[in-house]
C-alpha cells in the first residue's frame, strides 16, 4: 500500500515542472503542454484522494477536468493559429503590439 503522501509528492513535482515550463518556454505550444501537465497534476491528486476518502467524487471530477483540458487546447490552438498568421511565429514574446 502506497501512502497518499507519495502521490501528493508526484503531483506536486509535476505541477512545478509545468510551472517551470510556463516560466521559461517562449513557444506557445510548449506553454499549452505545460498547462496540461499542471492540470494532470490536479488529476493525480483527485484520484489519490478519491481512494483515500473512499468516495468517487474525485475520480469523476478528474474525468471532467480531462475533457475541459481538451476543450481548452482546442481554443488555444485556434488562437495560436491566428497568432501565427498575424505574426508569422508561435513565439509568445513576438507579439508586442500592446504593453502588458
Amino acid at each position: 500500500m502506497v501512502a497518499v503522501q507519495y502521490y501528493l509528492l508526484l503531483s506536486g513535482a509535476i505541477f512545478c515542472i509545468g510551472l517551470f515550463g510556463i516560466l521559461t518556454r517562449r513557444n506557445a505550444l510548449f506553454f499549452l503542454m505545460s498547462v496540461e501537465l499542471m492540470l494532470n497534476a490536479a488529476n493525480i491528486n483527485l484520484v489519490a484522494f478519491s481512494f483515500q476518502y473512499g468516495n468517487l467524487t474525485g475520480q469523476v471530477f478528474s474525468l471532467f477536468i480531462t475533457a475541459l483540458a481538451a476543450a481548452e487546447v482546442a481554443v488555444g490552438i485556434g488562437i495560436i493559429l491566428v497568432l501565427y498568421r498575424n505574426f508569422g511565429d508561435v513565439d509568445v514574446t513576438k507579439a508586442t503590439t500592446l504593453r502588458w
Binding site: A67, A71, I77
Partner: peptide
C-alpha cells in the same frame, strides 16, 4: 455547452 463553445470558437478562429 463547453464543448459546443470550444468547437464554435476553434472553428471561427481557425
Amino acid at each position: 455547452l463547453v464543448l459546443i463553445a470550444a468547437l464554435a470558437a476553434a472553428v471561427m478562429l481557425a
